[in-house]
Nucleic acid binder design. Structure first.
Lengths: 147, 147
DNA sequence: CTTGATAGTTAGCACCGGCTAACTTTCTTA
DNA sequence: TAAGAAAGTTAGCCGGTGCTAACTATCAAG
């Protein structure tokens, strides 16, 4: 475990309460997945409703409700009963950063010969653990080739 | 989330109960980290005791106790009160596979220019999400270069 | 306008993986 | 060998992320 397990984007925020590591790490990954999905849905469908997340994550309404409530508590989304889910500034920032990392990782995996399907699957899990440095290394290779 | 989040080595075992995904996925990652650490400790120190895991993961004795109890319940380790922790066959298999993936991922990250320190950190998080196909792609590049 | 389907909420449960506190066992060493 | 330190256990707590079941709200059709 160690700091290792913390999704990179949130490491700084959590650095002052080093314990509760895994719990927080896992929570952060879920948060990143959710804001990313919310941003995507808003981009493609105009708004994001619970049902969209139910479908994307294949969990129940109740679970989405719980999770979204936590996101709201943590200042990442705003939502009122029976209303669409909107991202806050912080939520949008997190979503953009996650999306970017996700895209770089997926493109990189494809660049090293992984099939698009597998690249899509693996990149979802991997993205949460890629540091700035590793992301730069991947980006460099995407830009410049293996030179 | 989706199947994506499942550590690759255990995906098959879980495929018949597709729900409880994230919970199981997270549990599996912890299991992999523990059996890997146990195997390492046995290799270097002869036996593995709780205290070794306490130090490696920086958690309390109580937490190690709980986790090891789950590993025993799941058939990965055997341990009796006040006795060292031993891996079962299944535990050893999982540890070996995890170790191998971990090593390939770390070596690969270094090969693309990531510093050893960062490669060590990132590979710990990433390894759980690397499929056979992606692992092969990394291995191929380690063997053959970028050709 | 009512009715039924779809969407959302709430309450209550379970498991995981953290923790502290209090205890017991084992080891070391004076 | 007795005492103190180190290691291990147990009980009980919390939060996160799942679930089901039962309820309420909203929306589309007829």
């Amino acid at each position: 475990m160690s700091l290792t397990a913390l999704p990179v984007l949130l490491r700084v925020d959590l650095s002052d309460r080093v314990h509760k590591r895994t719990r927080d790490a896992h929570a952060s990954e879920v948060a990143e997945d959710y804001v990313e999905a919310i941003a995507d849905t808003v981009a493609t469908a105009g708004v994001c409703r619970s049902i969209d997340l139910v479908k994307q994550f294949d969990v129940t309404h109740a679970t989405v409700n719980n999770t979204v409530a936590r996101l709201q508590r943590d200042g990442l989304v705003i939502t009122k009963p029976y209303q669409p889910i909107e991202l806050t500034h912080a939520g949008r920032r997190l979503a953009n950063a996650s999306r970017k990392r996700h895209d770089v990782v997926r493109a990189f995996l494809e660049a090293i010969g992984v099939s698009p399907r597998t690249a899509a699957i693996d990149s979802e899990g991997i993205e949460h653990h890629v540091s700035k440095e590793t992301l730069r290394a991947m980006q460099r290779i995407l830009d410049d080739g293996w030179s």
